[in-house]
């Protein structure tokens, strides 16, 4: 999968320009989409607790892979949304948006046989085709994401500053 920094920056790049047009899309919601983008990365829990340990301890087949699938994102986003005291459906929507953005991005990475992993599980039990656009260790992908994010960030700051001046001048 793409690195976590790329994952969380993609919803920022996608949603921030929309915020310039939509008053109700404030920064705190974009931040939740960025948090949702990190959900598939929870699969890296295997660095702390290997799935083989769970299999041998509990005596059942087990894989962390569903965390990085459509089903995993929908369920984990639900669990996180329950940690919020208000507007849980809206929170859930932004978390799922971010998670889906990461899954789609990961679905474009290299597989030598041209088919991605089972990221549509459990709704579709087959491997969608992948254009094999990148490998996650290639720093060029992150460089492009960082450059676009910096541009969006600067435009956003410029717009906020301009809006404040405009409001103060009373024009």
């Amino acid at each position: 999968m793409a690195d976590l920094l790329t994952h969380v920056l993609v919803p920022f790049v996608l949603l921030t320009p929309l915020r310039w047009r939509l008053d109700w899309l404030s920064k705190r919601w974009i931040v939740l989409a960025m948090a949702g983008a990190a959900i598939p990365d929870l699969v890296k829990i295997d660095l702390v607790l290997d799935n083989g340990v769970i299999q041998t301890t509990l005596g059942v087949p087990f894989s962390y892979d569903p965390i990085s699938t459509l089903g995993g994102v929908l369920v984990i986003a639900g669990a996180i949304a329950l940690c919020f005291g208000e507007a849980r459906r809206r929170v859930y929507g932004y978390l799922v948006f971010g998670g889906l953005a990461s899954l789609v991005l990961d679905g474009l990475r290299v597989f030598v046989d041209g088919q991605a992993n089972f990221w549509l599980y459990p709704f579709v039990w087959r491997r969608p085709p992948t254009p094999s656009l990148y490998v996650s260790s290639d720093p060029r992908g992150l460089a492009v994401t960082l450059a676009v994010s910096a541009l969006v960030f600067l435009l956003d700051r410029y717009r906020d500053t301009w809006s404040e001046k405009y409001a103060r001048s009373g024009i």
């Binding site: 087949p61 087990f62 892979d65 089903g71 995993g72 369920v75 984990i76 669990a79 089972f118 599980y121």
Partner: peptide
């Protein structure tokens, strides 16, 4: 929800 994710892990594998 955590139990459901665990269940998916067992089913998937």
């Amino acid at each position: 929800a955590v139990g459901l994710v665990f269940g998916m892990g067992v089913h998937y594998e």
